[in-house]
Nucleic acid binder design. Structure first.
Length: 828
RNA sequence: GCCGGAGUGGCGGAACUGGCAGACGCACCAGACUCAAAAUCUGGCGGGGCUAAUUACCCCGUGCGGGUUCGAAUCCCGCCUCCGGCACCA
């Protein structure tokens, strides 16, 4: 062992040591409180960059800290390997996704290990493993059996080139991210999970998430988008059918001057088929549907529409109300049809003005007359009801309730709630996913695959590069299957499941990753779950996190788990930018951990990742900053190795009872740092924890420089300081700390050591500086013993020479004192 | 438009429930060591004024404008800018 900080061999040495001792493996145990720390698993892209690394270092430092602090910490990792990103990469590099995944996983796992991350690899989960996705299929079957999975028509993003449905995030500027084809919004038969059934529960239980970031809760709340209103049906002249509309403003019903259907609404066809308007309307709806996606991104798409020729009957007045089709009504919200009240809704107003439809005000602001012809914008505030039959003359909010009562009594409609949340489309017409475990039989219809036949294996020999239809449908061997019910000829479902399905339950698998009788072992799940701390990117606020909550609730209601929320506490880490852009492979601005490891070592990369700034905020990568972190580790290295002969591992007995002033100050700093670091790590404030450790290191360096080598008390104080320094630093830079720990004659690994206890009485200041202000401006300060009463400090402060010129010849009208902090004289 | 978040030195960022703004680090400057450089160590480092210069001292300063308070980066009101999310939600 040389005296130089040879990080390469040190890091390799300790990584080997940890892995040989199987240090990071955990089991259930009752003698310690459990702690489940979970990082969102990555999709195996093949290479980590410092953006990911920051995230995983946060987790590792925290998990190590918790372990040392006495918790039984579950800290697992796995791979989100099934899905489009992997399939696309495989196509690009012309490899089979199985091979590609294996390669990427191998490399990334090595990268994780080189960073010294304390994962329990015996619990590794890989979603592309049939063991895993078989249980995902099992999950599908449970939802299916309970009416929560269904096949039906739904609005989807369809790329005709790739012949697949695209998730919203795969649509960029209205085009397919892969081939740039304009994406169509169309209706196709797809498999859905009925997440809307859980809209209310998902909303209500947000209250339980008091340790989630406020903004994530807000985003989910908004995403669910609950609004209370009224639904009712109106008759259509000359047709048997009725048209159902939803409104939040039933008080404005007397102001209805037209009705609007979304272009996709099935009634559009019914009402125009065979009429003279058929062609015009058909042309319009086609154009509207084709443009709708691209135009959605532009700020104010012009409202356009066309009259269907049909009339509805006003539910209160019996008047004829024309029915229009317009692009500003969306099929996937409410009923896809609205009652339009131009006087009191800005969108309806704009539309009415454009097409010369009458504007009839039914609510007026206090002391004002509204004239439908003269209005320049809709009046959307509250006011008095007018032109509203028996309801005229009262405040609109009261009228709203009465009109609702009346309509309910007549059986025309009912109070209703509408959600923005849509059902979750889980079908993908792609290869690299778990086959949806369903068989179609001419006799029996849609038949679920029996649980004992799971997993439905994804065949390897499939041409997945083709575009045109679901790749699996071309594999006859896979497709042809006996109907499990009648034994006749059946065909398998050729679609696979969406990536988000696998990730919606993976956290339940880690506690018992090898369980083969069930998706998870109930006892293990009961012990470890809910996740105590979940960490990941904010981009998953409304996707993954919503789906996971949903699946947990379903499993709860079916009796499979005992809790309703999977993640007790959530932390969203910031992204790493470089050259002003998010660090990503496609931008070519990545810094990889390998580069950092080679030049400075993993510990330096770890330290810098945590020191750059608050972990929940975005940060800019800075090459110079890394050097600073590296320098700090060198300083620690020298501080320890150059003073080894002064170090006593058995220092406790030699600690001075009273001690000199500098000894007391050193011990104070040591214990203050222990307090601060403990507190900061608990709150994941790594940047300030590191700063505090640096201060301790600086002070300890000064102390070491000044101490008398033969003074046992000095040596004991130094030894205590160094012991604390290395232990406090060890969750952050574990390799160098274990190495120094061993050289200090202590038993590694620090991972198994106790967290250094902070002693309050030693950390307490003996003297405090009292700031002396005159009229709020600092003019002096005085140093007094910490326990001095403020009353005793006032005369000392008043006697100050520096103060003299500010108070001379003036009256002290008021004296404000803050114990241990300051005195402020208010003078006139 | 609505909902979040953020604006502090040249830079990243500190500052507990209102109490010395700028911890810690980077960059920079000066000095020591060196033939020299690197590394390392020591000191300095918000702006302005006063001073021959130093010490001391004074004024200003946390996006902008008001306010509350003995005292505001922190609380309140009104704006501006940037970032993120949602967006014709009936």
């Amino acid at each position: 062992m040389s005296d130089s900080y040879d990080f390469k061999s040190i890091e390799r040495k300790w990584q080997d040591y940890w892995s040989e001792r199987n240090l990071f493996h955990v089991e259930r145990r009752e003698d310690k409180p459990k702690f489940y720390y979970l990082d969102m698993y990555p999709y195996p892209s093949g290479e980590l960059h410092m953006g990911h690394v920051r995230n995983y270092i946060i987790g590792d430092a925290f998990a190590r800290f918790k372990t040392m602090h006495g918790f039984n910490v579950l800290h697992p990792m796995g791979w989100d390997s099934l899905g489009l990103p992997t399939e696309n990469a495989a196509i690009k590099f012309d490899v089979h996704p199985i091979e590609w995944t294996a390669r990427c996983v191998r490399n990334m796992k090595q990268q994780f290990d080189r960073l010294g991350i304390s994962y329990d690899w015996s619990r590794e989960v890989d979603t592309s493993d049939p063991e895993y996705y078989g249980w995902t299929q099992w999950l599908f079957l449970q939802l299916f059996k309970n009416g929560l999975a269904y096949r039906g028509p739904g609005m989807v993003n369809w790329c005709s080139q790739c012949a697949t449905v695209l998730a919203n995030e795969q649509v960029v500027n209205g085009c397919c991210e892969r081939c740039d084809t304009v994406v169509e919004r169309t209706t196709r038969e797809q498999w859905f999970f009925r997440i809307t059934e859980y809209a209310e529960k998902l909303l209500e239980d947000l209250e339980l998430l008091d340790r989630w970031p406020e903004r994530v809760v807000k985003m989910q709340e908004h995403w669910i988008g609950k609004s209370r209103g009224f639904s009712f049906s109106v008759d259509i002249e000359g047709y048997d059918e009725q048209m159902e509309v939803f409104t939040t403003r039933i008080d404005t019903v007397y102001g209805v001057t037209f009705m609007v259907l979304a272009p996709e609404h099935p009634l559009v066809r019914t009402l125009t088929e065979g009429t003279e308007r058929e062609e015009e309307v058909r042309d319009y709806t086609r154009a509207a549907m084709a443009q709708s996606f691209i135009d959605r991104t532009s700020d104010d798409t012009e409202k356009t529409g066309v009259f269907t020729g049909a009339y509805a009957t006003h539910p209160m007045t019996g008047e004829r109300v024309p029915i229009w089709v317009a692009n500003y009504v969306m099929m996937d919200y409410g009923t896809g049809a609205i009652m339009a009240v131009p006087a009191h809704d800005q969108r309806d107003f704009d539309f009415a003005r454009k097409y010369d439809i009458p504007v009839v005000p039914v609510i007026t602001p206090e002391g004002e007359e509204l004239d439908g012809e003269m209005m320049t914008e809709a009046y959307v505030e509250d006011g008095m009801q007018i032109n509203s039959g028996e309801f005229s003359g009262q405040p609109n909010r009261e009228a709203l309730e009465q009109i609702a009562d009346t309509l309910e009594e007549c059986g025309i409609g009912h109070r209703d709630v509408s959600y923005r949340l849509r059902d979750w489309c889980i079908s993908r017409q792609r290869y690299w996913g778990a086959p949806i475990p369903v068989i179609y039989c001419d006799n029996c219809g849609t038949v679920p695959v029996p649980e004992e036949d799971l997993p439905v294996q994804l065949p390897e020999d499939v041409e997945f590069r083709v575009t045109g239809s679901s790749p699996l449908s071309q594999n006859e061997e896979f497709m042809n299957v006996q109907c499990p019910r009648c034994g006749g000829q059946g065909r398998r479902e050729a679609d696979t499941m969406d990536t988000f399905v696998y990730s919606a339950w993976y956290y339940l698998r880690y506690p018992s990753p090898h369980e083969d009788e069930a998706p998870f072992n109930r006892e293990d799940v009961d012990y470890w779950l809910p996740v105590d701390q979940y960490v990941g990117g904010i981009e998953h606020a409304t996707g993954h996190l919503m789906y996971s909550r949903f699946i947990t609730k379903v499993l709860h209601d079916l009796g499979w788990v005992g809790f309703r929320e999977p993640f007790a506490s959530l932390f969203t880490q910031g992204m790493v930018y470089k050259d002003g852009a998010k660090m990503s492979k496609s931008r070519g601005n990545v810094v990889t951990p390998d580069e950092i490891n080679d030049r400075y070592g993993a510990d330096t990369g770890r330290l810098f990742s945590l020191f750059v700034g608050p972990p929940d905020q975005d940060t800019e990568w800075n090459d110079e900053g890394v050097v600073g972190s590296h320098r700090f580790l060198w300083r620690v290295w020298r501080l320890a190795t150059e003073n080894l002969e002064h170090y006593e591992s058995d220092y406790a007995a030699a600690l001075p009872e009273e001690g000199t002033q500098s000894q007391r100050a050193m011990r104070r700093k040591t214990h203050q740092t222990a307090m601060k670091v403990t507190d900061d790590l608990e709150g994941m404030r790594f940047n300030t924890a590191v700063a505090a450790i640096m201060e301790l290191s600086n002070d300890l360096g000064d102390f070491a420089g000044a101490m008398a080598a033969d003074d046992t008390a000095d040596r004991a104080v130094f030894s205590e300081g160094l012991t604390y320094l290395i232990a406090l630093l060890s969750p952050i830079t574990p390799h160098i700390c274990d190495e120094l720990w061993a050289r200090m004659g202590r038993e590694p690994s620090l991972f198994e050591c106790e967290w250094p206890p902070a002693q309050d009485e030693l950390a307490r200041e003996e003297a405090v500086t009292i700031v002396v202000q005159v009229n709020g401006k600092v003019r002096d300060n005085v140093e007094v013993a910490a326990d001095t009463e403020m009353d005793a400090v006032v005369p000392i402060a008043l006697a100050s020479e520096r103060l003299a010129k500010y108070i001379e010849g003036k009256d002290v009208v008021k004296t404000i004192t803050v114990p241990g902090k300051l005195i402020n004289f208010v003078v006139k």
